[in-house]
Design a protein around this nucleic acid. Structure first.
Lengths: 258, 258
DNA sequence: CCCAATTTGTTCGTATGTATC
DNA sequence: AGATACATACGAACAAATTGG
């Protein structure tokens, strides 16, 4: 499998560290080095590129920020090729959406399209152990819901259910996007004091659909699973919007800032 | 709009440049600095953090690699907060999928779910100018298809059509994900010599659906647009798989490597 | 437990490049 | 053209971390 290429950083490269970083990336690809492989020592790189230590180190930092390398001190240490972690990728992508902030509607437009698809693709393909694990996550939020700000924990548990589901997908793209959407949503709700409030309707609907979903998955009923999740997405979206609207009314002056 | 937070880099931070970079991120968020704002000069940062020039510079490189800052020399120069570009975000995310490579099936599972949704959400919301622009892109690939490797250009044009469509969405998430999927697919096809070959069936189907789609969009027929794109996704996926299978047979020894 | 070797991490002083006025 | 303000790059020395004896 010729590894295609590690993406080069766009936008007019110029500085020496940037050029060195790109050269090292290309080098890794050309040599087919895999995660864990140690690349030449600082001293060797200094000689190889004919540049000062500081310049080389800045290049390494550029790669490090992208999650592509990791360095350790001491004997046997050095700079190592590193597989970009999902968490790192999500963090990096999250920075983009810090500036181009999606709305609740935007997030749900994707969730509504993807989650039912995920559910359908999982039907009949999960092991008994995986199904049990899902039920364990459901049990976590089985408590009656009562208390005040502890409701936020319930919402988090619901998102964790979705994350667990996503992790079971064999499709890394689907897994990543759904997980990322859940993160964005969690962030949006926490930061706006949204979570599901003590809304009993949402809670009941949540408990309900999770158990019905697991049942459909267990039965290998793809279309059933798709339908359950599609319906839930609609409900969750509607309830979240309702809350958002309620908050907007209460705190209108707040929204005026900026 | 309190900007929530710029994502911190996961995975056990330790070195000084990393800590400084995180501190600067937090500083930017706390002060509410926006793209274009100049942050303190190197000298000032050295004083502020009580560290050497090299350390501070490495921290700046860490932020630069994430696309969060940009620096310019000369008077009036300095380090500036920078809005992460879509291209940069896609490149960074692409590095993740360099190691966790999705299959053609994986990519199409998402495309099949998202593109019809995009089409439906666009119906009746496009200006005449936008519709004309779509038709212009269609015209680009209106040639009869004949020649050999120039067929790859046709495939690229088709992906460009999708990209243009995505850009017209008001949903930044949808825009990004669909654009990214197209990139991944383009890369996969180019690197595996896939593109649509001289497959007349795919070409005709492509021409066909594009014009029918624009018609539906012009008519404001959301469900029609959705159906057109859903059908096309199925066809494109099927044809691409057929080609992939043909290639696999011809080059089986190649696949044995690694 | 300490010591020595190895490799990255950090500092400082100086010089160069570049854009603005 | 020259002065100014800023990042960029160099080089040599020293500090910290890790490993093995």
């Amino acid at each position: 499998m010729p590894p295609v290429t590690i993406r080069s950083t766009p936008e007019a490269r110029q500085s020496r560290p940037q050029r060195v970083a790109e050269a090292i990336k290309q080098w890794v690809v050309d040599e087919g080095w895999e995660p864990g492989h140690r690349l030449p020592s600082e001293a060797a790189l200094i000689a190889r590129f004919g540049m000062a230590k500081g310049t080389i180190r800045e290049a390494i930092r550029l790669l490090e920020a992208q999650g592509l390398v990791r360095s350790r001190t001491g004997p046997g240490g050095g700079v190592f090729v590193h597989q970009v972690s999902e968490a790192r990728a999500a963090a990096l992508l999250g920075n983009y959406f810090y500036f181009v902030r999606p709305s609740i509607d935007d997030i749900y437009q994707l969730r509504a399209a993807l989650e039912p698809e995920l559910a359908a693709s999982l039907a009949g393909r999960l092991s008994a152990a995986q199904l049990d694990r899902l039920e364990a996550v459901i049990a976590e939020s089985a408590a009656p819901a009562a208390s005040a700000e502890e409701e936020a924990a319930r919402h988090a548990a619901s998102l964790r259910f979705h994350a667990t589901l996503a992790e079971m997908s064999g499709n890394p793209l689907l897994r990543f996007v759904i997980g990322f959407l859940a993160e964005l949503l969690g962030e949006a709700t926490v930061n706006r004091g949204l979570h599901s409030g003590t809304d009993p309707e949402l809670w009941q609907s949540g408990q309900d659909y999770q158990t019905r979903l697991v049942a459909a998955l267990r039965a290998g009923d793809a279309e059933g699973a798709r339908a359950v999740l599609a319906a839930h997405m609609q409900t969750a979206h509607r309830l979240m919007k309702r809350q958002e609207a309620a908050l907007a009314k209460r705190f209108l002056p707040e929204r005026a800032r900026r």
